[in-house]
Amino acid sequence: MSMLASQVIKGDIRSIARLISLVENNDSTAIDPMKELHRFTGKAHVIGVTGVMGSGKSSLIYELAKTYRKQKKTVGIIAIDPSSPFSGGALLGDRIRMTDLSTNKGVFIRSMGTRGMLGGLTAAVYDVISILDAAGKDIILVETVGIGQDEIDIAKIADTTLVILVPGLGDSVQMIKAGLMEIADIFIVNKADKPGAEQTVAEIESLLDICEKSVRQTPIIKTSAKKKQGISDLIQEIQNHKEYLKTSKQYEMRKRKRYETELYELIRKRLMNYIYDETKLKDRIDNLIDQITKKKLDPHTAADEILHKILK
């Protein structure tokens, strides 16, 4: 086994951090350690946390992490913020809400930029989850950007998906639009100390009445991260959901779904890497583009040619 993989399994912070960087940078030296880590994964409970900007995701994750630590569980946190489509840079500020966790030995926090993935989750997230899982984290909390496709994507890889709403944002219509009703395993009405919390709960309930598809009723939990209320209720519901998954055989189905999504994503990523690789195809593709521009060739024929080349 590679040095890096074995250090990750031991929980060495520097190695975990370094391997995550390699994965994020699409560095090919990450592939071997990732292969080796697979058989050490599958123990962690992966919790996706999603909700619009300002719904208090980071603060809630902070409270969850602290409570899990009290139960002696180790925690990994992946906090994703959008990368700038113009510069490719990103401001990653979720840690501000969790500052004293950085000295908590049982917690590992990593901030990630979306790095050019429009809407969806960055492909590296799958690997980062696997790394933290193999490193022995009991709970892995994934905080999404909270817009569009990445919320739907998180539901495909998380064991439990939390959807956070806050009173007074009038988000119920958007919720149906964004398909959030389908992905939520637990609804959270955060900032429940503010007026309008009951109304938000009622709105979710009536929407659930319309869309409820399974035997399990989706619970709605009221929390206030600020006042530290409702956190233990939430943890109990997460536990209940985990047990429900196990008893209803949903667990295997979800895991399968996750690996399905991951595999397709990986194939797509590898193909893209191959296609964009300067030494292999870039020159030929540039040449084809010239021909298309000069109307000597059409894009479909050009695509056929490249695919043929790859599959050969």
């Binding site: 520097r14 951090a17 510069s87 401001l91 840690r95 501000i96 500052t99 950085s102 901030s111």
Partner: peptide
């Protein structure tokens, strides 16, 4: 913001950090 606009990924700690918090964060964030 300037570093972000220059294409870098910037992790901001917020105020009132201890030395230990800063170094641990730097380590985890590589």
């Amino acid at each position: 913001r300037a570093l972000r606009d220059a294409g870098m990924e910037v992790i901001y700690t917020g105020l009132h950090q201890t030395a230990e918090q800063i170094v641990n964060t730097a380590l985890q964030e590589d």
